[in-house]
Design a binder for these strands. Structure first.
Lengths: 160, 160
DNA sequence: TCTAACTCATTACCCGATCTAACGATAGCT
DNA sequence: AGCTATCGTTAGATCGGGTAATGAGTTAGA
């Protein structure tokens, strides 16, 4: 392992693809919604996947437990999240979404998806087929190192 | 304009493609570098494109002029940016990168590109061709509404 | 021409978010 | 039972950002 200079075309593709993805992400974040703070939405998405403890959530979001505790305070005040004690371990606090919390996630996702849909609707079927295949490839790449060397907790992509 | 329900395949593609892009962006931000604060790097990238005035930069980065002024203070202390008076208009402050500032941008970009390169190196030529075409399509989509309805200032994709 | 209005950057002050350190509370081990 | 580790919260400090007010500089009109 040392990446002894990949060929120029691959290097250029890596750069261009990375830039394109980051630009899409940036545009979505800037142009869409803003009905909820980005870090709050990110938390809701994690809890939409499954209920979690506060410590888990803090680790996933790469934030200290006290910070996450404060965020949860706010999301609980908004009625999007509920704290409940863990039946097996009294130290843990289990977090889960309320129905309203799930609605918020659903609405925001619709807005974001609509942003992207509006841009690919005008493409030809052939072009959309290319994007479909590329998307599947990207998903494979992202999935590939989920259990890999570093096995990071980052991944939902809905973040911030 | 009203998007009267696009076909399901397109809607699914929009969702999956957006998610994939955002996940890539998130992973790059989390996994790579962290040698410089994200908002600082974003500013350096804008100045790497071309010298700008403080007000321009604040508008592009969507922060208030006072905040940008403070960020520039820090980047100037780090030796990455220099303020210089505009010869034609004494009110303006022209901002440009130092050699070291350019080096920082270069190094960070290399790290980020290497992250992506490491993931696409293992693909077949056919798969990389798909990604190449998809990247070009995405660049077209991003470019398409640069002069469009809202003509937002967001676009570098190197941000945050 | 010279003053009034406007523009750009900075300074002053406040708020919100995050961090580390310290503190109960609960589990688990010996 | 008692000791130690873990989880979440509270306390205090720091940092990034926002609005309001200030000062320098430019532009336009009497």
């Amino acid at each position: 392992m040392s990446d002894p200079a990949p060929d120029p075309a691959t290097a250029a593709l890596a750069h261009d693809l990375r830039m394109a993805c980051m630009r899409v992400a940036r545009r979505v974040r800037f142009d869409v919604g803003n009905t909820i703070a980005p870090h709050h939405f990110s938390v809701l998405v994690r809890l939409h996947e499954q209920p979690r403890t506060l410590g888990e959530l803090a680790a996933i979001e790469q934030v200290s437990p006290p910070s996450m505790s404060r965020s949860i305070d706010q999301l609980a005040d908004l009625g999007y999240v509920v704290r409940s004690p863990d039946p097996d371990d009294g130290r843990l606090v289990r977090l889960s979404l309320t129905g309203e919390g799930r609605d918020v996630v659903g609405r925001e996702r619709e807005l974001r998806d609509a942003w992207m849909a509006a841009r690919i609707e005008g493409l030809s079927d052939a072009d959309r087929t290319v994007l479909r295949r590329a998307t599947d490839l990207l998903e494979g790449l992202l999935e590939a190192d989920r259990g890999g060397a570093q096995s990071r907790a980052s991944g939902s992509g809905e973040a911030r």
